[in-house]
Simulated scan of single mutants.
Amino acid sequence: MSVIISEPPAIRCVGAVVHDRTGRLLMIRRANDPGRGEWSLPGGRVERGESDDSALRREVHEETGLRVTVGPLVGNLRRTGPHGDYDIRDYWCVPDSGTLCAGDDAADARWIDRATLTTLDRDAALTEGLVELLRSWDCLPGAQ
């Protein structure tokens, strides 16, 4: 007799890569774990029966006060967290309306230029590997 051990399915999540007209990147400072206090892209879990598109529009609005149009998939990654593995799909988004303000799971929300991103990276204030990932996807913020 053999024993089959199966792993629970990964938790599906989405993230938004959003740049403003000047090339700055929309980022949030996480208010809750995993990653409390770290700066990251806005996003979160996809709820049961929800599409990536609707989950992303909901999460961005809840965390930043902004409404976005969701574009193509930029890339995806898998992270291990305290409740299992997270399958994160990041999409290119365009801001439509709203006023930037931190809400829901965000302690802060800001438009970040390249110099600020470099400082946050140097100070280990970013989600691990974020700069390398954005660089590999050609999504770093513009210099100001």
Rank of each mutant, 00 (worst) to 15 (best):
G81S: 14
G23P: 08
C101V: 13
V68A: 07
L77I: 12
L134N: 05
Y86Q: 10
R58W: 10
R24D: 09
L56D: 04
M1Q: 03
R29F: 00
R57Q: 14
V14D: 05
G23K: 00
D87S: 10
R36Y: 09
G84E: 11
E7D: 08
A143E: 15
S2H: 15
R89D: 11
I88V: 13
P82C: 03
A109P: 07
P95K: 02
T127I: 10
G15C: 06
A31E: 09
G35T: 03
R48M: 07
T116H: 11
P82Y: 12
L120A: 03
D90Q: 13
R58G: 03
G15M: 08
T22S: 15
C101I: 11
D20K: 04
G65N: 08
Y91I: 10
D33G: 08
A10W: 02
R45K: 08
D33F: 13
G75R: 03
D113A: 03
R30P: 02
L140P: 08
S40L: 07
V68N: 04
D105N: 15
R24H: 11
R110H: 10
L41V: 11
I28E: 01
R114A: 10
N76P: 02
P42E: 06
E132G: 14
M1C: 09
D96L: 10
T116M: 11
H61T: 13
R24L: 07
D96Y: 05
D123Q: 10
R36D: 12
T99L: 09
W39A: 01
R29N: 01
E38P: 00
A125M: 11
H61K: 13
